[in-house]
Amino acid sequence: MSAQEVKTEGAKLTVKDFQTPHDIRWCPGCGDYSILAQMQRVSPDLNVAKENFVWVSGIGCSSRFPYYMDTYGFHGIHGRAPAIATGVKVARPDLSVWVATGDGDLLSIGGNHFIHACRRNVDLKILLFNNRIYGLTKGQFSPTSEKGKKTKSTPYGAIDHPFNPVAVALGVDTTFIARTMDRDAKHMQLMMNRAAAHKGTALIEVYQNCNIFNDGAYEHLTEKDQKPDTTVFLEHGKPLIFGKNKDKGIRLNGFTPAVVDLSSGQFTADDCWVHDEFDKSPVRATILSHFTEMEDFPVPFGIFRQTTKNTYDGDVQQQIDDITKSQGKGDLMKLFTSANTWEVK
């Protein structure tokens, strides 16, 4: 496929190269617009020829995404995007394969494909648009909806316990796990760039507002006045500090995290938990992933953990190359006659 690695001729790619002329059909004000804009913004700088991008999606509002990216795109069926994308990437490791999906698509009907793509470490970049609701089917609770949520299908409140996507991804040893939000363009771009640079499955959970069916789900995290106290931005090698005045920190006592006050003089930044993106052990990232369920803890954004392991697509190709080298290129007639044969005269 070497011929296809050649870049498109001419000038450097721009945002415009990734925009399609089609009308975008998301509701005005939907968080999806921001995700699309950031992706179009970072794409020209990813060092990938335009024709080598493939966007694959499932079903749901988020899964319309490929129609709006002027690359190769495949709008699949509900839940199956990771499987379709796996096929694309394994067949053609030279391509840069991205998945656009939502909480219903990836975590409910597609849960099995999600965990297995991550387990295999297929070199896919997965953008999970998590709006905690079914949008396209008009407002049923999703696997990430909070317990007790009243929706059309749960008039008396949802009984289900929600999924924690980051914890699930950590559980199957996903090699790149990050979280960002629709309202923080810069941070989202950073996460997209980092995911693109990662070799292996990269999951970015994007907190995305569905202003029609679940408006304000993340307001406390995205609004300027509350954001500093409700979120913590993870940076490699930096202590976990948050708060309007950078006056709160997170300490780790054994396996137990605690929010500490840095203004009282009892603790300083040096006492806080220092984030290690490349931690060999998944334990600390797992603790971080559960902050969302812990009262008084900020919601972490950034890269939870990044590790290296062989990619599935790479190993499939490697095995073929190795065996072809040791056995020689296959000869069809030899294959036909590889069993006992006899001649009839």
Binding site: M1, Q4, V6, T8, T20, A49, K50, E51, N52, F53, V54, W55, S57, I59, P66, Y67, D70, T71, Y72, G73, F74, H75, G76, I77, V88, R92, D94, L95
Partner: peptide
């Protein structure tokens, strides 16, 4: 097929 310059297009189940 993907990788072919200038023929970028989208298909799907709709």
């Amino acid at each position: 097929i993907p990788g072919t310059p200038g023929l970028e297009h989208r298909i799907g189940g709709l």
